[in-house]
């Protein structure tokens, strides 16, 4: 198994929900409650050293439930290694995840985008506003699967 996953399992035995490997990429699904602690650990531990957050992608897995998730792609310059974290929102009606802005400042715009397009609320985000669509699009999140491709 991947060394980072092993480290995470040792450190956070009850936070890991799933480990997924595909084409050499490892994605670990964690419980949202421990997401920030896991991120903090991955950034600060000298053996993982994920100082860089590549992207945060909001995903709508409709019709599956839990429906909404955010995928965090990390990179460690020191070990030249990529790693992905995933966290599912507990509620399908009011999706909320903790914000990782305190860990990586770059999450600011990534999370605003995920909020705007997928409608995941990030609690603790310093300035959660729409970013790509106009503010008057209240209630609409275009990347949701129930949002039509055309006709709006």
């Amino acid at each position: 198994m991947d060394t980072v996953t092993e480290k995470l399992q040792a450190q956070f035995p009850d936070a890991i929900v799933d480990v997924y490997e595909f084409r050499g990429d490892v994605t670990v699904t964690v419980k949202p409650a421990q997401l920030v602690a896991v991120c903090q650990f991955l950034r600060d531990d000298p053996e993982t050293s994920f100082k860089y957050l590549s992207s945060v992608s909001g995903v709508d897995y409709y019709p599956a439930s839990p429906r909404f998730a955010a995928v965090y792609h990390l990179y460690s310059h020191q070990f030249k290694k990529r790693f992905a974290l995933k966290a599912f929102c507990a509620s399908d009606d009011l999706p909320v995840l903790p914000s990782v802005v305190p860990v990586w400042s770059t999450a600011d715009w990534h999370e605003r985008e995920a909020y705007d397009l997928v409608g995941i609320k990030f609690s603790g985000h310093p300035d959660l506003r729409r970013i790509l669509t106009p503010p008057e699009c209240e209630g609409y999140h275009p990347l949701r699967k129930d949002y039509p491709q055309e006709g709006y």
Binding site: Y20, F22, R23, D25, T27, S54, S55, V71, H73, R82, A84
Partner: peptide, 15 residues
């Protein structure tokens, strides 16, 4: 499956 691939675009990481 789910994949992430990044390249070095002229302006930085394009993933």
């Amino acid at each position: 499956g789910e994949v992430y691939h990044a390249i070095e675009a002229p302006k930085g990481e394009l993933g």
